[in-house]
Nucleic acid binder design. Sequence first.
DNA 1: ATAATTGTTTAACATTTGGTTAACCTTATA
DNA 2: TATAAGGTTAACCAAATGTTAAACAATTAT
Lengths: 221, 221
Amino acid sequence: MQGLKLLIVDDEPDIVDMLAYNFEQEGMTVSKAYNGTDAIRIAESEVPQVILLDVMMPDVDGIEVCETLRQNSELKNTLIIFLSARGEDYSQVAGYKAGADDYVVKPVRVKILKHKIEVLLNRFGAKNESVDESNITINKQRYTVSHLGEEHIIPKKEFELLALLLSSPERVYRRDEILRDVWGDAVIGDRTIDVHVRKLRERFGDNVIQTVKGVGYKFAG
Amino acid sequence: MQGLKLLIVDDEPDIVDMLAYNFEQEGMTVSKAYNGTDAIRIAESEVPQVILLDVMMPDVDGIEVCETLRQNSELKNTLIIFLSARGEDYSQVAGYKAGADDYVVKPVRVKILKHKIEVLLNRFGAKNESVDESNITINKQRYTVSHLGEEHIIPKKEFELLALLLSSPERVYRRDEILRDVWGDAVIGDRTIDVHVRKLRERFGDNVIQTVKGVGYKFAG
DNA sequence: ATAATTGTTTAACATTTGGTTAACCTTATA
DNA sequence: TATAAGGTTAACCAAATGTTAAACAATTAT
C-alpha cells in the first residue's frame, strides 16, 4: 500500500487521527476531512486511491458524498469504504447503492480493515494506471497525450473522451456512459460524440478508436 | 449476476438451502457442498465465479479449503467469501490470509451479501468473462468473441444471441426464450432467429450452435 | 475592451451496416 | 411421402455512425 493516497473522512477527529496513524504506518499518504463538503473538495483535488468515509455526519452525510464522488469519472476507480455505527440492513444497502465498495460497522478493527483494502486493491489494482501498452499515453496532471514520442496538448473534451476510453482500453463504452462521464448533465446533440471521435482519429489515426455499432466506442491500440 | 455459477458450502443444509434459494432467484446457477472435501471437488470441476464458504466445518475447514483452492490457477479469479459465526479479529485475519475476498459474520444478511458480491464482481469483472470449455469465449466488456485465438467484433444481435446461448452451454433455449431475451418486446418474424444463427454458424462453424428441432437452440462446443 | 484564436456544438447530408423479411429450399419425422 | 420445422439467400430499409462546414462560445492575446 506504499505510496497510495488515502482520504479519511469522519466528524470525530479522534477516529480520523487513529486511522491516519495506522495507515501512515503502512506508508500511505493520508488526507483528512471532518465534514462532507471538505471531503468532496479534497477528494476531487487529491484523487486518492482509497477513501474511508463515515456515514453519519452533520450537513452533508457520507451517502451524499459517495454519490457525488461517483459522478466524477476521475474517482471511478477509487475505493470507497463506509464506516458506520449503524449496522442495519437498509443502511448498509443504501451505502452499496450509493456506490460503496465495502461497508464496515464500527468499531473499526484496523487489522481487518487493512486486509479488506488490500484485497480490493489487489483485485483490481492495476486498473488505476491509464498507461497502455500501445503507443498512446496520457498524463492527467500535465494534460498531455504522448503519441509516437510527441507530446500533444489537446482540447479538454477530446482529452476527457480519450482519457475515459483509455482508462480501460479494449472495453467498450456505451454512448450514454460516455455522455454521462464526459458531459455530465449537459444536454447535447447526438452527433457531438462522433465529431470528437473524428478529431481524435484525425490526430492519432483511425485505428485508435474503434466503433462497436449499436453499442459504443473503445480504445484499441 | 445472471448465469454466473455459485458454489455454497456449509455443513448446515438449512443455511445452504436458504442461500441457494436466494441466489437462484438472481438467476445464478447454484451448486451445494456440505463439507470441505466435496467443496474442493465441486469447485475444481465446476469452476464457479463465486464461492460462499463456511469457516467451521468438521474435518476440512473453510480456511483449508480456501488455501487449497487458491493454489489452483483456474480458481484464481473466483470470488471466495467466508461465512462464519466467529467475528473475532484473528479469525477474520486468518480468512483474509487464506486468500478470501470478504469475510461475512453470521447471521448472513442476504441483501447485503448480494451487494457485496455485486461490487466485487463489478470491480474486477469476472462477471463479464464467460469462459467456456470450448474454444469460444465472449467478453461483454470488450464486446468481443475469441475463437481460435482470433478476437472478433460481431454485430449486436448476433453477440447477444451468442451470449445468451453461451451463458448456459448445453442448455436448450426455446425460441420464445431467445426472443424475449434478445429482442425484448419487439415483434419480429419467425425466420429472424434462424438467420442470426446462420450468421454465427458461418463465422464459427456449423457445430457451434445445435438445433433441437421443435424446441430451440443450444450452444455446443 | 476588443480582436484573434481556439474550442465546442449543431445541422445538414452522406455513408455504412446491421436487422428483417420474403421467397424458396432442405430435412426430419409422423 | 406429406408436412411442419428449420435452413439459406439476397434484397431492402431503417438506424447508426461518419463527415463537413459553419455557427456559436470561450479563451487568450493585443
